[in-house]
Design a protein around this nucleic acid. Structure first.
Lengths: 346, 346
DNA sequence: CGGTGCCCCGAAAACGTTTACGAGTCAACT
DNA sequence: AGTTGACTCGTAAACGTTTTCGGGGCACCG
């Protein structure tokens, strides 16, 4: 309620001096600064963000765009909450606030982003769930707004700042593991939309198969919604094949839950009659019986990485953060379970 | 990049007229308005939010505070994403944007909220996961910021605007169902923190037991984290009792997953040797085997209700929304499953 | 005693927008 | 013809802050 004006006249000081005192400028007497800070705390003064934004043209806030259409998430626990926690941990060091901008399910993501960007409500953006071609990347580069993407894309000539999970590594280790156990026909469950991780993951699979000199069979690639339902459906299709595979690799842990369910209905046990490897370890995946073989990472650390990489491309902070963080493949650690214990006799 | 000034001189018109034309004021010629809108679209003009905020003292945005410390969520799917979708649907009708404000796990929620409020970054707030005594409610009323809470609280004299789930109804129907099947010793799993829904749910349980003339046994009330792990632990304690109950009611669906797991380890089957009733139906709960008896609601509708009730207490919109929505118990629909099919011989 | 430099502060402009006020035009009515 | 009113628009103030500029002290040095 109280502004810098009232604070100034309460102290019999000009507003300029008050502003300088509050912002830690050097050219103000120590005693004066002490009085100002004391009075500010006493009267509960806090700077009006709009006035500050208008004057200095920035907002001290960064946006994190997510999509509130829940289906696209595909994560069993609150993936974003974990990541956000890490991002905030970094931003807090510089008094930057994080605003989550949820794109409504019925709105075009690029248009929504455009609106948010042109409103100048944030100094930088984090976008996630990048698609194979993603207009948001061109939009942000054109607007010259610092940003970082969680996920690669073919847009922007792949020269924009991003961090992405190690889908190739996961695909390779999953295939290696299955091949070592004698599997040759391995199905892969991918998301049905054009989110880029599906393509990257598939490339990783193809590379691994070629390395093992196994012919790639496109009919073993099955796409479905990145949900339990999707995993159920994928498994259903797999089991109905004339020449069914003996193993299944899934790119979302939610899919694994559906897969377990469908296998159970068929009287099969994961890791006994059929091998399943999931993607990300999550509290829920941990409760699958038998334990799901999957891959682990720290959501919070990922958030910290995102935050630091973002700061590295924001002019006011760029010098304190190494530029090397701007592009990064985020490693994931294998968590061996029982779901792929099945050794194919062959 | 382009401001109203440039737009005005490009049209040889005063900036006042441009502003009036853009804001739909009546005192501007139709032809002039057409030209302004056309030029604005062509040059990609969009109002600087900071300038507008500063002038008219509001932000055309409402905040939704959540806690990014993931543990408190207790929901298996992305609960908030569903609710947010509904809220946005309502707000969009009035050109209001929604900002999600995630309180960092290591920061005091009230202090965080205080910061956000005094920055005047939002015109109104939605808070969730209210605690039994919740300083945020007093804070918001004192700041005279319109708000609505998802959840009741004893703070604020219970005269603040809220919407809350029908925990009493759920508790009563759960107990009714179990008693009708002959159960007399019924355990209840509650969250271990002081989130208010735990207390309300417990009151509902007590009332229902009294109605059935069953003595309330405090040792059957078990508190744990609102996670799968918590449900596992609760079930573990229940099974270890000297005089174990025959049924368990849980206030989070995530707990049910842990309960199933622990029962399985004990060689027991839900709905056969032991009755389990969960709380909210979710995509994941649907995949439990046997089907979990739980309660259903539409997250999106809840969000719509929240949004409308919020608008009802925001001065600029209060007239278009009925005041009756301001306090509301949100109904939930019973979804019968097999997890409580077990009829106790008694 | 004049010049120089430093420390601290006040005055005022500027950010982009909205809006109160008044003025100009023109038609219509008395 | 004078008055009224409707319609349209330009002028300028205001929102709260930051920041540039310059000036008044004061000490120090020549």
């Amino acid at each position: 309620m109280i502004g810098i004006k009232r604070l100034a006249e309460h102290l019999n000081i000009s507003i300029g001096t008050v502003s300088r005192a509050l912002n830690g400028r050097p050219d103000v007497n120590d005693e004066t600064r002490r009085r100002v800070l004391e009075a500010a705390a006493e009267l509960g003064y806090v700077a009006n963000q709009s006035g500050r934004n208008l004057r200095q043209g920035n907002t001290n806030a960064v946006g994190f765009m997510i999509e509130s259409g829940a289906d696209t998430a595909g994560n069993s626990d609150n993936f974003f909450l974990g990541v956000i926690d890490g991002v905030q941990h970094v931003l807090a060091r510089h008094d930057l606030d994080l605003l989550v901008l949820p794109c409504p399910g019925d709105e075009n993501p690029s248009q929504y982003l455009q609106r948010m960007v042109s409103r100048r409500a944030v100094d930088a953006m984090i976008i996630s769930a990048t698609h194979r071609v993603d207009a948001r990347i061109d939009l942000l580069t054109k607007a010259r707004l610092p940003f970082i993407a969680l996920g690669r894309s073919t847009s922007g000539g792949n020269v924009y700042p991003w961090i992405d999970l190690d889908f190739e590594g996961v695909a390779n280790r999953a295939i290696d593991r299955l091949v070592a156990k004698g599997h040759r026909r391995i199905a892969v469950g991918l998301p049905s939309n054009d989110i880029n991780l599906g393509f990257i993951f598939l490339d990783g699979i193809k590379g691994a198969l070629k390395r093992h000199k196994i012919r790639f069979d496109p009919s073993l690639i099955i796409r479905a919604a990145s949900t339990e339902q999707g995993g159920y459906q994928i498994t259903h299709e797999v089991l109905a094949m004339k020449d069914p595979p003996t193993a299944l690799v899934l790119v979302y842990e939610l899919m694994a839950i559906g897969a377990y369910r469908r296998l159970g209905e068929a009287g099969m046990t994961p890791g006994k009659d059929f091998a399943v490897i999931g993607f990300r370890e999550s509290p829920l995946a941990k409760f699958l019986q038998p334990a799901l073989t999957c891959f682990r990472m720290s959501l919070r650390d990922l958030g910290i990485g995102l935050g630091e990489s973002l700061l590295a491309v924001m002019p006011p902070y760029a010098d304190t953060y190494p530029q090397g963080l701007v592009n990064k493949i985020w490693p994931m650690e294998l968590v061996p379970g029982e779901s792929d214990a099945f050794t194919r006799k062959g």
